[in-house]
Design a protein around this nucleic acid. Sequence first.
DNA 1: GTCTATAACGAGATAGAC
DNA 2: GTCTATCTCGTTATAGAC
Lengths: 206, 206
Amino acid sequence: MKRQPEQAETGSTTLDVAERLVQSRGFNGFSYADVASELGITKAALHYHFRSKAELGQALIARYASRFGDALESIDTGDEPASTKLQAYADLYLGVLRDERMCLCGMLAAEYSTLPDRMQQTVVRFFDDNYAWLQRLLETGRVDGSLQFTGTAEAAAQMIVSTLEGAMLVARPYRDTARFQSVASLLIAEFTRDGRSVPRRRAREP
Amino acid sequence: MKRQPEQAETGSTTLDVAERLVQSRGFNGFSYADVASELGITKAALHYHFRSKAELGQALIARYASRFGDALESIDTGDEPASTKLQAYADLYLGVLRDERMCLCGMLAAEYSTLPDRMQQTVVRFFDDNYAWLQRLLETGRVDGSLQFTGTAEAAAQMIVSTLEGAMLVARPYRDTARFQSVASLLIAEFTRDGRSVPRRRAREP
DNA sequence: GTCTATAACGAGATAGAC
DNA sequence: GTCTATCTCGTTATAGAC
């Protein structure tokens, strides 16, 4: 994978611009011309760095997944309880939404059937990695007592990803991060029975 | 809005074909040529019925919202407890996913920023109507005792829509309705304390 | 590494015959 | 209501000069 030249004016690279466009407009909603004009170069120059749109898309997912993985590692290194780490996980999503973006792979999941094979595979791997990380976190939380849930950690992990991705999806048209935060709070409250983050917790067992 | 001529061969109308294409590929992932070729007519003939793609898209959301509203009304007419109606609501999503489709408005929510103004407004109205319906259902359920939740019915409604839309979004790449059902079960279990409607139930799956 | 120029194609849309 | 034919534009991608 080729290195990108830095853009002196804004510091934005090709990948930065393309990533933002995909996250806001979708992979089928942007063009080489869009990226090139923002960077102040020509489409031909773009093709020098990424021979095809599929290759650019592939590089986007790879970088996104890599950074996301780094963020998860960073969360892991702390010695906070699992519940705090779950909140940090949700905050990753919030940060994306604050930028008026959709999760890159959430967006690509919507367009999934139109994507090149290689991109499809990498999108799935992104989610698999998320599930695996969450599963470990949930099992840790069960042990340290900071997280409670019924059923398997696998199912709970799917619940968490589904809810956060969906909350981003439906909050974005309203340009209202509070909607997302409200849902994220309820979600986390389900996993932290003491319910400090929610008012009037429901009494399950005395 | 013009009436559509029935297609003798399959019974599929223009709206049927276009709807399926949008739900599986996105609004920016299909063309007039795609629809026309499936119907066995020309693009020009399509333009007779829908002068622009924006108009076609508008008609798609209108019909989808209308049918969804009918389904909600149909759920409402029964005298089952609210918890049963909530399960019926989730099953509406499941039916869409079984067809390997995304919720039409969930898909359009992803592409939101690229949509014509009128379509944007109608997508938002679809979600508003869903929230309003769920809010009423939740409050009814609180009264009849079949549903329990903390916080406002409004927040709970957003939680439900977020989770179901997100579960569809992330389950589709895996072509695995069981993933969706697992999440939907956990979601409904949160709202039904006795949990009788939940455990390991595989509704109508061969 | 970036440019101009252009190829090759597909998109949305229209005109006018039947 | 559907057709053929065409227009215009945007898209991905390449060739070759600098």
